[in-house]
């Protein structure tokens, strides 16, 4: 699949935003974070900014952004529509919760209920996002439960890393939270390793033989494409990424997306004093870079069945 920058940006940044929101909405009411306005205001702001920026960027790849509202209508059948609805709906408790926390100074009680609702909304939204991909049979790499685990864990981990950084920037030490984040980074890593392991070789769900029905005649090989230069389908869905290039990027994703943030969290947990915020910021930057790389690969390495009509042997 063509790794379109707007979709990569959208899924990673809004994922981080929803991750942050989920932690804020869950741990805020439980008083596990901090009520200090110097933390709450920027944290809520950044979370909502990430979410909003992601959503806005997701409209960039639309042919008709002005009609984006129509995407809210088909929630009964479409995961994309459900994602849109969930995203919009989540804003309501999120904003109320933010208002209460910031202006009333109260994150628990009734306001906390909104926090929990926002947290649930964030999880549901990311789940919907994941389901958009997971539901596509035409892309066997994606048509697997691990995609949902990836999206949820990556959002939780990256949101957590960012939130941890914001806590530490305010010199608020929360070793418990750091430990939770560390655990999530490791879980996310595990889920991604499992995804990459499962998709290392094409699953052979479909082949040029099944796509054409000619498999019974022997090995099926493309002789001529219908058009000499690449068409929309090829440009959008038959993306080739070189093996060496992919390996390099995967190394970056492993290191920047998981190893570096995990090590940073572990070190922060042991408390290295003034280095804590520095490491937290580095962890946040690193996991962002790692996730963008991971997301690029998620798209670029996904083999769409239509490729079978354009020279791909199996998907």
């Amino acid at each position: 699949m063509n790794p379109a920058p707007s979709i990569i940006f959208f899924t990673t940044v809004s994922g981080m935003g929803y991750g942050m929101l989920a932690w804020l909405g869950l741990f805020g009411p439980l008083q596990l974070l901090s009520d200090r306005p110097g933390f709450v205001a920027p944290a809520m702001f950044v979370a909502l900014l990430f979410i909003a920026a992601g959503l806005v960027s997701s409209t960039f790849h639309l042919g008709h952004p002005e009609r984006a509202w129509r995407a809210l209508t088909q929630w009964r059948s479409s995961w994309l529509s459900r994602e849109g609805v969930a995203a919009v709906v989540t804003f309501v408790p999120a904003l109320i919760f933010a208002f209460g926390w910031l202006f009333i100074g109260e994150a628990s009680e009734v306001w906390g209920l909104f926090g929990l609702l926002a947290s649930v909304g964030a999880v549901v939204t990311v789940y919907c996002t994941a389901m958009i991909y997971r539901s596509l049979r035409a892309i066997p790499n994606w048509h697997r439960g691990m995609v949902v685990a990836n999206y949820l864990l990556l959002a939780a981990a990256s949101g957590g890393v960012w939130l941890n950084a914001m806590l530490l920037l305010n010199r608020i030490e929360r070793p418990f939270f750091t430990a939770v984040v560390l655990a999530l980074v490791l879980l996310a890593w595990l889920s991604k390793i499992l995804y990459w392991r499962d998709t290392a070789e094409p699953a052979g769900v479909s082949t040029a033989g099944s796509a054409t029905g000619l498999g019974r005649l022997g090995r099926v090989a493309l002789l001529e494409t219908p058009n000499w230069e690449a068409n929309y389908l090829q440009k959008e869905m038959v993306f080739h990424v070189g093996r060496k290039h992919a390996d390099k990027l995967r190394l970056i994703a492993h290191f920047a997306g998981f190893v570096a943030p995990a090590v940073a969290c572990a070190v922060i947990w042991t408390d290295v004093g003034w280095m804590n915020p520095v490491l937290a910021i580095l962890a946040a930057s690193s996991i962002t870079l790692g996730l963008v790389t991971e997301r690029w690969l998620f798209f670029a390495e996904a083999k769409h069945a239509v490729g079978l009509y354009y020279g791909v042997d199996q998907v």
């Binding site: 639309l62 009609r67 035409a138 959008e236």
Partner: peptide, 12 residues
């Protein structure tokens, strides 16, 4: 149509 292209992704 909002031009999200998702249908083109969904079609094998």
């Amino acid at each position: 149509c909002i031009g999200c292209k998702l249908c083109s992704w969904a079609c094998p």
